[in-house]
Amino acid sequence: MSTRSQVYLWAAQRLSAMVLALCVVVHLITLIYAVRGGLSAAEILGRTQGSAVWAAFYTVFVLAVAIHAPVGLRAILAETFGWRGGLLNITVAAVALLIAVLGLRAVWAVIA
């Protein structure tokens, strides 16, 4: 991987961290608000189904996680197990794709 790509990965992780900081706060506040009168699937779906705002919010959230976590995982695997090179990059790219697919599928499930 070129030096420039490594720098862009670093920048992507920093930017996604900023997005995540905001998303996690909104998510936690919503969570505390949502369970006030007990938690039910119907109540959650009532809030999220057909909502463009929640769809956009959780799509951004999922994509930020799909960027942030694999970049961090790449550094952890390299530093802990000395694993470097092409196979590592392919592996973490696959993890990124997996997180994005599973996350977006979950968003779709509560929005559609």
């Binding site: 490594q6 720098v7 470097r84």
Partner: peptide, 8 residues
Amino acid sequence: AGDAGCHA
């Protein structure tokens, strides 16, 4: 820059 430099 990069993995063996400042960004690590």
